[in-house]
Protein backbone atom coordinates (compact mmCIF):
# COMPACT_ATOMS: atom_id res chain seq x y z
CA UNK A 1 0.00 0.00 0.00
CA UNK A 2 2.66 2.46 1.06
CA UNK A 3 4.82 1.38 -1.86
CA UNK A 4 2.00 2.03 -4.29
CA UNK A 5 1.51 5.50 -2.84
CA UNK A 6 5.17 6.40 -3.01
CA UNK A 7 5.46 5.22 -6.63
CA UNK A 8 2.39 7.18 -7.61
CA UNK A 9 3.54 10.37 -5.90
CA UNK A 10 7.00 9.91 -7.37
CA UNK A 11 5.68 9.87 -10.92
CA UNK A 12 3.39 12.77 -10.18
CA UNK A 13 6.31 14.80 -8.89
CA UNK A 14 8.27 14.11 -12.09
CA UNK A 15 5.29 15.04 -14.25
CA UNK A 16 4.84 18.26 -12.33
CA UNK A 17 8.19 19.45 -13.63
CA UNK A 18 6.66 19.84 -17.08
CA UNK A 19 3.48 21.60 -16.01
CA UNK A 20 2.79 25.29 -16.32
CA UNK A 21 3.25 27.23 -13.06
CA UNK A 22 0.00 28.11 -11.28
CA UNK A 23 1.21 31.53 -10.23
CA UNK A 24 0.87 34.38 -12.72
CA UNK A 25 3.80 36.35 -14.05
CA UNK A 26 3.04 39.67 -12.44
CA UNK A 27 3.84 42.45 -13.58
CA UNK A 28 3.89 41.10 -17.15
CA UNK A 29 0.45 39.66 -16.65
CA UNK A 30 -2.32 41.54 -14.87
CA UNK A 31 -3.94 40.06 -11.76
CA UNK A 32 -7.68 39.49 -11.68
CA UNK A 33 -9.62 42.71 -11.27
CA UNK A 34 -13.40 42.60 -11.76
CA UNK A 35 -15.19 45.31 -13.73
CA UNK A 36 -16.85 46.70 -10.64
CA UNK A 37 -13.82 46.63 -8.41
CA UNK A 38 -14.17 49.08 -5.54
CA UNK A 39 -11.59 51.66 -6.60
CA UNK A 40 -11.00 55.41 -6.50
CA UNK A 41 -13.81 57.78 -5.62
CA UNK A 42 -14.44 60.41 -8.26
CA UNK A 43 -16.18 63.75 -7.83
CA UNK A 44 -17.97 65.94 -10.34
CA UNK A 45 -18.12 69.54 -9.22
CA UNK A 46 -20.67 70.56 -11.83
CA UNK A 47 -23.32 68.13 -10.61
CA UNK A 48 -22.82 68.49 -6.87
CA UNK A 49 -25.45 70.41 -4.92
CA UNK A 50 -23.15 70.82 -1.88
CA UNK A 51 -25.47 69.12 0.59
CA UNK A 52 -22.54 67.44 2.43
CA UNK A 53 -24.42 64.18 2.90
CA UNK A 54 -21.45 62.19 1.63
CA UNK A 55 -19.30 63.73 4.33
CA UNK A 56 -21.81 62.82 7.02
CA UNK A 57 -22.10 59.22 5.81
CA UNK A 58 -18.41 58.50 5.38
CA UNK A 59 -17.29 56.15 8.17
CA UNK A 60 -13.59 57.04 8.43
CA UNK A 61 -13.98 60.73 7.54
CA UNK A 62 -12.20 60.72 4.21
CA UNK A 63 -14.28 63.54 2.72
CA UNK A 64 -14.46 67.08 4.02
CA UNK A 65 -15.79 70.29 2.52
CA UNK A 66 -14.17 73.62 3.25
CA UNK A 67 -16.00 76.87 2.65
CA UNK A 68 -14.71 80.22 1.50
CA UNK A 69 -16.15 83.46 2.82
CA UNK A 70 -18.32 83.91 -0.27
CA UNK A 71 -20.00 80.58 0.50
CA UNK A 72 -18.25 78.54 -2.17
CA UNK A 73 -17.42 75.02 -0.97
CA UNK A 74 -14.43 72.95 -1.98
CA UNK A 75 -14.29 69.16 -1.87
CA UNK A 76 -11.30 67.43 -0.24
CA UNK A 77 -10.74 63.71 -0.38
CA UNK A 78 -8.02 61.55 1.14
CA UNK A 79 -7.42 58.31 -0.68
CA UNK A 80 -5.33 56.89 2.15
CA UNK A 81 -8.09 57.33 4.73
CA UNK A 82 -10.90 56.10 2.46
CA UNK A 83 -11.92 52.47 2.86
CA UNK A 84 -13.72 52.36 -0.52
CA UNK A 85 -17.01 51.31 0.98
CA UNK A 86 -19.05 53.57 -1.37
CA UNK A 87 -21.32 54.75 1.43
CA UNK A 88 -20.86 58.28 0.06
CA UNK A 89 -22.18 57.18 -3.34
CA UNK A 90 -25.25 55.63 -1.71
CA UNK A 91 -25.85 58.74 0.41
CA UNK A 92 -25.59 61.22 -2.46
CA UNK A 93 -28.99 62.51 -3.65
CA UNK A 94 -27.59 63.66 -7.01
CA UNK A 95 -26.61 60.85 -9.32
CA UNK A 96 -23.11 61.18 -10.71
CA UNK A 97 -21.91 63.90 -8.36
CA UNK A 98 -19.79 61.39 -6.50
CA UNK A 99 -19.03 58.01 -8.02
CA UNK A 100 -16.77 55.00 -7.70
CA UNK A 101 -14.41 53.91 -10.47
CA UNK A 102 -12.64 50.57 -10.78
CA UNK A 103 -9.15 52.05 -10.78
CA UNK A 104 -7.18 50.98 -7.69
CA UNK A 105 -5.90 53.90 -5.67
CA UNK A 106 -2.22 54.77 -5.78
CA UNK A 107 -0.30 54.26 -2.57
CA UNK A 108 0.47 57.20 -0.34
CA UNK A 109 3.90 58.79 -0.53
CA UNK A 110 5.88 60.36 2.24
CA UNK A 111 6.06 63.71 0.41
CA UNK A 112 2.31 63.99 0.46
CA UNK A 113 2.29 64.06 4.27
CA UNK A 114 -0.99 62.26 4.08
CA UNK A 115 -1.63 61.81 7.79
CA UNK A 116 -0.63 65.05 9.42
CA UNK A 117 -1.42 67.15 6.41
CA UNK A 118 -4.90 65.68 6.28
CA UNK A 119 -5.55 66.21 9.96
CA UNK A 120 -4.57 69.86 9.65
CA UNK A 121 -6.66 70.26 6.50
CA UNK A 122 -9.63 68.62 8.18
CA UNK A 123 -9.46 70.97 11.15
CA UNK A 124 -9.06 73.99 8.91
CA UNK A 125 -11.98 72.94 6.75
CA UNK A 126 -14.26 72.65 9.77
CA UNK A 127 -13.02 76.01 11.02
CA UNK A 128 -13.62 77.70 7.67
CA UNK A 129 -17.20 76.41 7.75
CA UNK A 130 -17.71 77.69 11.27
CA UNK A 131 -16.27 81.05 10.26
CA UNK A 132 -18.61 81.25 7.28
CA UNK A 133 -21.59 80.32 9.44
CA UNK A 134 -20.65 82.97 12.02
CA UNK A 135 -20.23 85.57 9.31
CA UNK A 136 -23.60 84.67 7.83
CA UNK A 137 -25.22 84.93 11.21
CA UNK A 138 -23.63 88.31 11.81
CA UNK A 139 -24.80 89.59 8.43
CA UNK A 140 -28.29 88.27 9.07
CA UNK A 141 -28.37 89.98 12.44
CA UNK A 142 -27.16 93.23 10.87
CA UNK A 143 -29.78 92.99 8.18
CA UNK A 144 -32.49 92.30 10.72
CA UNK A 145 -31.34 95.27 12.78
CA UNK A 146 -31.34 97.48 9.69
CA UNK A 147 -34.86 96.40 8.77
CA UNK A 148 -35.97 97.00 12.30
CA UNK A 149 -34.61 100.56 12.39
CA UNK A 150 -36.22 101.21 9.01
CA UNK A 151 -39.55 99.99 10.30
CA UNK A 152 -39.23 102.12 13.38
CA UNK A 153 -38.44 105.16 11.24
CA UNK A 154 -41.49 104.48 9.09
CA UNK A 155 -43.63 104.11 12.15
CA UNK A 156 -42.31 107.36 13.59
CA UNK A 157 -43.12 109.16 10.30
CA UNK A 158 -46.67 107.87 10.14
Amino acid sequence: MIKYFTMKTFFKAILNLFKKPVTIKYPFEQTFIPDDYRGMIGFNENLCIWCRRCEMACPPGAIVFSQAMDGKQTYHFNRAVCIYCSECVRACPKEGAIFQTNVPAKCALKEENINNGWNILYGEALMSRAAYAAEKKRLAAEKAAAIKTEMEKKEAKS
Binding site: F32, I33, P34, D36, Y37, R38, I83, Y84, C85, S86, E87, R90
Partner: peptide
Amino acid sequence: EAVCGNRIQYDFSIVGGVA
Protein backbone atom coordinates in the same frame (compact mmCIF):
# COMPACT_ATOMS: atom_id res chain seq x y z
CA GLU B 1 -13.65 39.92 -5.27
CA ALA B 2 -16.06 39.60 -8.16
CA VAL B 3 -19.10 39.66 -5.87
CA CYS B 4 -18.01 42.29 -3.34
CA GLY B 5 -15.38 44.27 -5.24
CA ASN B 6 -12.59 43.57 -2.80
CA ARG B 7 -10.49 40.61 -1.79
CA ILE B 8 -10.52 41.04 1.95
CA GLN B 9 -12.81 43.70 3.37
CA TYR B 10 -16.15 42.91 1.80
CA ASP B 11 -18.31 45.67 3.38
CA PHE B 12 -21.21 43.74 1.93
CA SER B 13 -23.92 43.87 4.59
CA ILE B 14 -25.17 47.26 5.59
CA VAL B 15 -27.90 48.08 8.09
CA GLY B 16 -31.11 47.26 6.25
CA GLY B 17 -29.78 45.03 3.52
CA VAL B 18 -26.76 44.56 1.30
CA ALA B 19 -24.61 47.07 -0.51
